[in-house]
């Protein structure tokens, strides 16, 4: 009985915070646009009883999903989002792993401070931090001023409003999500394993590949998911730093909702986005399952 209650808690949580909103969005995505408040039809009218429910379900259709296939903007936006998210995740991994590694190998008394430094940016608003990147990356920004001053360049570099700025923004914003799980995995690792590997003939580098990387694998996977998933739907960073060149589905979603006020199409975009995200999660789960079975 107690167990049942304990298991029920996370399921209720999931139901309230994930499933219910999802069903609402799904329902809107199956509706039609209307000049009304809310701006779609049908709405469920229970006062008409059974007939009302029937009419309600009868009016739902997949028209909006069909519409998404007619304009190549949408699939291009999805594809470019996935692409940007993959590249950004790899970049974050490339930057985050050495930092996590350094933290895990730092003297014990340094670690709490380093940890604090990693989390510190969260103490200021996300929006302010992205805005300040505009100040750094723009043509007259600090970075260009500095590079011009050192004489490395003679013309200011155009970074803002290019994909590079988006990558910088994403790596900067999501770095802690990459560092923390990898750090947790590395910190748990027993140092004598590396000694054992060296003793058995590994160089430092091959010991790193054969022991450190496999043992931090779970941290790497967790970090990549924590970066990849929010990045796909990212809206603020591409719209502030990416300019009109960068096509991301988060921006399309925003425009459908607020510029076109087409809630049903926007919802359809969101539902597809969710489906795209579910695929890697399922793959991840499968992989874990397989590992567990191989172990068992």
């Amino acid at each position: 009985m107690r167990r049942a209650v304990l298991i029920l808690v996370p399921y209720l949580w999931l139901l309230a915070l994930f499933l219910v909103p999802f069903i609402i969005v799904l329902k809107i995505s199956l509706s039609d646009i209307a000049l009304a408040i809310p701006p779609y039809t049908p709405t469920l009218d229970l006062s008409e009883g059974w007939a009302g429910i029937k009419a309600f379900f009868g009016a739902l259709d997949f028209e909006n999903f069909w519409f998404l296939t007619t304009d190549d903007l949408y699939w291009k936006a999805y594809l470019s989002s996935v692409q940007i998210a993959i590249i950004a995740t790899l970049l974050t991994l490339l930057v985050g792993y050495p930092i996590a590694y350094g933290m895990a190998n730092a003297p014990d008394h340094w670690r709490p401070t380093l940890m604090l430094l990693v989390i510190l940016p969260f103490w200021t608003s996300f929006l302010i931090r992205v805005y300040s990147w505009m100040g750094i990356l723009s043509n007259e920004g600090y970075l260009n001023q500095f590079l011009l001053w050192t004489g490395l360049i003679s013309e200011p570099l155009t970074i803002l409003n290019t994909p590079i700025a988006v990558y910088i923004g994403i790596v900067y914003t999501y770095l802690p999500f990459m560092i923390l799980p990898i750090y947790a995995a590395l910190e748990r690792m027993d140092g004598s394993l590396l000694e054992a590997a060296e003793d058995l003939g590994c160089s430092r580098l091959s010991a790193f590949w054969l022991v450190t990387i496999p043992l931090s694998r779970n941290g790497i996977i967790a970090g990549c998911f924590l970066v990849f998933i929010p990045t796909i739907g990212e809206f603020v960073i591409p719209s502030l730093l990416g300019g009109s060149q960068t096509l991301m589905i988060g921006k399309v979603l925003w425009e459908e909702f607020f510029n076109n006020r087409d809630w049903p199409v926007a919802s359809a975009v969101a539902v597809i986005l969710l489906l795209i995200l579910i695929i890697p999660i399922i793959l991840f789960q499968r992989n874990e399952q397989k590992n567990r079975e191989a172990d068992g």
Binding site: D190, S192, L193, E195, A196, D199, L200, G201, P214, L215
Partner: peptide, 18 residues
């Protein structure tokens, strides 16, 4: 260590868990 013709059995075993 990796160039020595010496092998060690560690007190803590140091087996590779993966």
């Amino acid at each position: 260590p990796n160039k020595r013709a010496v092998n060690m059995m560690f007190q803590s075993y140091a087996l590779f868990p993966h």
